Simulated scan of single mutants.
Amino acid sequence: MALIDDLKNAQKDAMRAKNKVRLGTIRMALAAIKQKEIDEQVTLGDSDILAVLTKMVKQRQDAASQYDAAGREDLSATERAEIVELESFLPQPLTAEEIAALIDEAMASTGASGMQDMGKVMGVLKPQVQGRADMGALSALIKQRLG
């Protein structure tokens, strides 16, 4: 089943269960997906939807850390609850060993030997790890291997 269908079914379930946090978060995600579809005039596939959900999680993590710094635990807790709901639609995160194996495989397939090949390696890895690994951390690991 497509990810958009999972979101819509989860929305119906949250309505039936009267789970306001889950329902609000799913509605927000569906609105963001619809907005991107309208802006780009395309129908998003699962990988594009994962990118939207991943971006939403990152935004909430940033907001929660800012709320924590400002001493607003109530708002931080709301953001963290939304993160939990969004992450339930993301695939399981990759382990460090799996990421290392994927980097080795990508470097071998592209013939990467130095920093000039960073883009090639990232191009191969991005679709494989979308929503399953932090792209910033992945980039740092690749730089470490190539440098």
Score class of each variant (00 low, 15 high):
V57A: 13
K8D: 04
S113K: 14
M107P: 03
L30H: 06
M1Q: 14
I99R: 06
G119L: 12
T25A: 02
V42C: 00
M28L: 05
Q130E: 14
Q35L: 02
D134P: 11
S113L: 15
M135V: 07
M1C: 15
L30E: 03
M28A: 03
K143C: 12
M56I: 01
M56F: 02
I4V: 15
Q66A: 10
Q130P: 03
V124I: 12
R27K: 03
K34Q: 15
G131V: 11
L50Y: 14
K58S: 06
I83Q: 06
T110M: 08
L125D: 09
Q35V: 01
I49V: 15
S76P: 01
N9A: 13
P91Y: 08
F89H: 03
D104H: 12
A64K: 05
I33T: 12
M135T: 05
G131L: 07
Q41N: 07
M56E: 01
I83F: 07
P93E: 03
Q66Y: 09
P127I: 11
S139F: 13
K36G: 01
Y67C: 07
S65Q: 07
L30Y: 06
Q144A: 12
S76Q: 13
T95F: 05
S139I: 09
M28I: 01
A2Y: 14
K36I: 02
Q35H: 02
A29N: 02
K36S: 11
L86Y: 03
A137E: 15
A140S: 13
I26S: 00
